[in-house]
Design a protein around this nucleic acid. Structure first.
Length: 488
DNA sequence: TTAAACTTCGA
DNA sequence: CGAAGTTTA
């Protein structure tokens, strides 16, 4: 162990911004004195640059991680394929470790780096730090990947191992000598914080970083799990985990979440809620599997027939949707929650996505792009897979003809109107009966609530009924022309 | 993780 | 005649 303890082990933090349950970090610590680094690689990311909300989160998460590492985290900015081999050579590191990422551009880059390091005689350690099951572990009996969630989860995962027990945080860390290393920059020089006034609008209830992630799990288990299965659909309720950004940046591993649930499994009354929450964790796994086996997931319709779908190009409608002024209150509430907080309740995500891709008939990729820029939990696998699911272009998707009615949905899932009134205060005085469809409210009700449609709040930019019909007709044409094409 | 249209049932 | 169940897209 003498030589090992003197050698330097670089751990490259990426989507694993934590010390506990970090397999590659733990391996690195056994190999030498730790040189922890982060590289903001905007060179290889090409068109997959992270958005403003994610950059804000990343900045704060890195600050927290550096604090946990007693200020030893080294920051770099640039092409990781150049920075990492150079750093390894100049520091004489014997080991480089990282936890695997699954975005296509990262796989390509990391594979190249691994080869370069190996040629230099450096030991490369890669581990699974962010998925319960590796995509290639969950396959159908013929060796092909699942395209439908239910069998993926109910049968496929049985072929994989049980999620491992979380690894404890290292008791102590021996750091590499704190000399200057080439090309190091300060965290501030990564320029992650937005220049616009966007941050001012955000609600201050996010706590990026490992400690915040742990606190959020505890909070959810005590305050959100009981009743989760039903109440998770109600955006005004506390029954959502809000773990997505923490999981995305790896401030917390899914294994830790899975394991934390086991402490509640002695309470039979929670069985349904725990089972349902595990299903949500498994959807994340399924999204990663879809991305791994369909690298074009963020841009290519999984159902090819949608390649000829007549998406409308309507810049004004897209902008109204983005800014939460479609005149459909439940949709506007969701879009404003997104803009103000960097987050949107899952039920509402489905409704605004359905509205964009069906009622407005705007290409789901426009919506995915907006979400990508606005969400603090923007995740290529989850975002792409979910948009394809809602818009009906995915393999195992809600059928295109399944169109959410935002009035019905609001009445059903925000029955007291708390969520809608919070984000659309200009119509808060409306009684519940007309809160979700003010355009149908009697004149005296509108007057009483101080509302002039088109002035104090927009008139709806589309008629729900006719736009629904338009989408269904376009979908029907798509299928007809396809049949005709096959027949001829 | 749907909704509209339609049918049936019971007051 | 409205509630509740069924079918269909």
């Amino acid at each position: 162990m003498g030589s090992a303890s003197n050698s330097i082990a670089i751990h490259w933090f990426r989507q694993d911004l934590r010390l506990s349950d970090n397999p590659a970090l733990s391996s690195a610590l056994k190999s030498g004195r730790l040189l922890p680094i982060y590289i903001l690689d905007e060179v290889n990311a090409e068109d997959a640059q992270i958005g403003d909300a994610s950059r804000w989160w990343l900045h704060h998460s890195l600050m927290e991680l550096n604090r946990s590492l007693k200020g030893n985290l080294r920051f770099y900015r640039g092409d990781a394929t150049r920075i990492l081999p150079k750093l390894a050579a100049e520091t004489g590191a014997g080991t480089v470790s990282w936890n695997r990422c699954y975005e296509p551009w990262r796989i390509k880059r990391d594979t190249a780096i691994k080869e370069m390091l190996k040629e230099d005689g450096i030991t490369v350690i890669t581990e699974n730090g962010s998925l319960l099951w590796e995509p290639w572990e969950i396959l159908k009996s013929d060796g092909s990947p699942y395209r439908v969630f239910t069998p993926f989860y109910s049968q496929g995962r049985l072929n994989g191992r049980l999620p491992r027990e979380p690894i404890a945080a290292p008791a102590s860390i021996s750091f590499a000598p704190a000399d200057k290393y080439p090309e190091t920059v300060d965290l501030a020089e990564l320029n992650l914080l937005p220049r616009s006034n966007w941050t001012l609008k955000r609600e201050p209830d996010w706590h990026p970083g490992e400690a915040g992630a742990q606190a959020q799990v505890r909070y959810f288990l005590e305050n959100g799990l009981n009743g989760y299965k039903i109440r998770r659909n109600f955006p005004a309720a506390e029954n959502r985990s809000r773990l997505s950004p923490h999981l995305h940046f790896g401030e917390l591993s899914p294994h830790q979440v899975w394991h934390a649930l086991s402490f509640k499994e002695h309470m039979p009354e929670l069985d349904d809620d725990i089972g349902n929450f595990k299903t949500e964790l498994a959807w994340r796994e399924f999204s990663y599997s879809l991305l791994f086996f369909n690298p074009g997931l963020s841009n290519v319709n999984l159902q090819q027939k949608f390649d000829s779908f007549p998406w409308r190009s309507d810049a004004a409608a897209l902008e109204a949707w983005q800014e939460g002024r479609t005149g459909i209150p439940f949709v506007d509430a969701g879009m404003r929650e997104l803009w103000q907080s960097g987050y949107m309740h899952n039920r509402v995500r489905m409704i605004v996505s359905s509205f964009l891709s069906k009622n407005l008939m705007i290409d789901w990729r426009e919506g995915a792009r907006w979400f990508w820029d606005c969400l603090v939990d923007a995740d290529l696998a989850n975002n792409s897979a979910s948009w394809q699911w809602v818009s009906g272009t995915g393999a195992d998707a809600a059928p295109y003809f399944r169109i959410f009615n935002p009035v019905t949905q609001g009445t059903r899932f925000d029955p007291n109107g708390d969520y809608t009134r919070k984000y659309v205060p200009e119509i808060a005085a409306l009684p519940n009966k007309w809160l979700f469809n003010p355009w149908e409210a009697p004149t005296d009700i509108l007057e009483g609530a101080g509302i002039v449609l088109g002035q104090t709040y927009p008139a709806p930019i589309v008629d729900l009924k006719t736009s629904r019909r338009r989408a269904l007709d376009a979908f029907s044409d798509l299928n007809d022309s396809r049949k005709a094409g096959v027949a001829s």
